[in-house]
Design a binder for these strands. Sequence first.
RNA 1: GGCGCCGUAGCCAAGUGGUAAGGCAGAGGUCUGCAAAACCUCCAUUCAGCGGUUCGAAUCCGCUCGGCGCCUCCA
Length: 473
Amino acid sequence: MALQLYNSKTRQKELFKPITEGHVGIYKCGPTVYSDPHLGHARGPIIMDTLKRWLEHSGYSVRLVENVTDVGHLTDDGDAGEDKLQKRAKLEKLEPMEIAEKYFWAYFDAMAALGVQRPDIIPKASGHIPEQIEMTEELIKLGYAYERDGSVYFDVSAWEDYGELSGRNPNDLVEGTRVEVRSDKDDPRDFALWKRAEPEHIMRWNSPWGEGFPGWHIECSVMSTKYLGDEFDIHGGGLDLIFPHHECEIAQARAAGKDFARYWLHWNMITLGGEKMAKSKNHFVTLEDLFKQFDPLVIRFHLLRSHYRSISDFSEESVQSSAQGLKRLLDTYQEVKRLSSGDAADSDAFAALRQAFGDAMDDDLNTPQAIAVLFDATREINTRLSQKPDGPYLNAATMFYEDYLGKIFGVLAANPETAKGDMLDGLLELLINQRQEARLKRDFKTSDAIRDSLAGLGITLEDTTEGSRWKLN
RNA sequence: GGCGCCGUAGCCAAGUGGUAAGGCAGAGGUCUGCAAAACCUCCAUUCAGCGGUUCGAAUCCGCUCGGCGCCUCCA
């Protein structure tokens, strides 16, 4: 089975075929860096990271581009509204660019903790002002945009495919659009390509229309095509970005003569108590707070346990159940790795399970289904473990986990085993031997005391018929 | 008002025409000095409700009830 992806544009699953054989270009809408990253920000990066890993595993070379918005868009789309970065800068008594820098790193540090590999290119909107001006000029030249008093707007009425992505009828939008108080627009549906900077506005650049700053949507049209080509494979974003953001992106890019993205992937929202997390409503849980309570990779695993197009409602209870499940997988991995020798592997042993895993992933990244395969495999492996399996089997099992739990899902680093050093190894061996002697003399008072003391240090001892083993909690 | 989505066991969550995956929690059992882990068994005659289509529906259609998203900035 080959990879199929649900394309928002056609509203159906489609067989994935890259434009250039063997290569895949992906653009992901990144964050506006003006406040602490929250759980909602984690889903997209994790699913795109997983997609990239799966594509690479399938033999493609992938270029993933994720933008960062740092030019200070308004809190409101009308001419009213404040620059978000500027607002935050006042609050923290910093330069707007300091705010951008601070939250840029807060975001990418959090993503790194979540096991998200760094995108191949992270273009910043502020670093692509000339390109944005250039596309805006082009759109004016082609008759798709007009200038009004230092601002430039895209003329929606001139682009007949407007609404193609979100399935909206442009005519219905006229009445539905909120009436703005002060606007230079000819039509309420029109959106800004460039905005005139009011005197108090700090983030401003020179342009053919005077000092101003770019509109929100133009940066993505410009930066995606700059690094991936006029037509590229995959464009991803949160479901809430379909309209107006992605609709406007397509309109601008295509009006400027670019074919733009082929496959549109949209991940669903993460909710809190059934309601979408939103910064503006102060209804969210920051990743920083979450990481105090859960290993970031547990969060990653938890998000992978629901399909990316489903709403995922956050609760501590459900994350806790994910943590328990992951622990079971990891425990078995540690055990097969400990016993494996590193030479030949039985390649047939996991053929069916590998096939099942791949089928699930190829079916629009059905990670919950793929994880179910991992649990099936784990039960099978644990059963074999009690029957003294041979080296090739153990090696195959180890590779199975390292491929899927490691390379694809990226949660193997949650393995406490990796944190232990040789000295700790040696010390534990010593203690276990001491305790074993006590046990042989049936001096359970001593043996239990050793075990209890270790437990107090966060080390669990487990006795088996072949001796004791230990693990870090 | 327009566009769209969802409702599956105590909780989380796949499945979208062929007779209900998986995880967590819970119950019983095996093993064990005890414990832990692991394994085995059990845990939805049923998929919000009601009708319809079909040999067959959680899956398709209609209606009803409940929840949510977008149409402002948003992952």
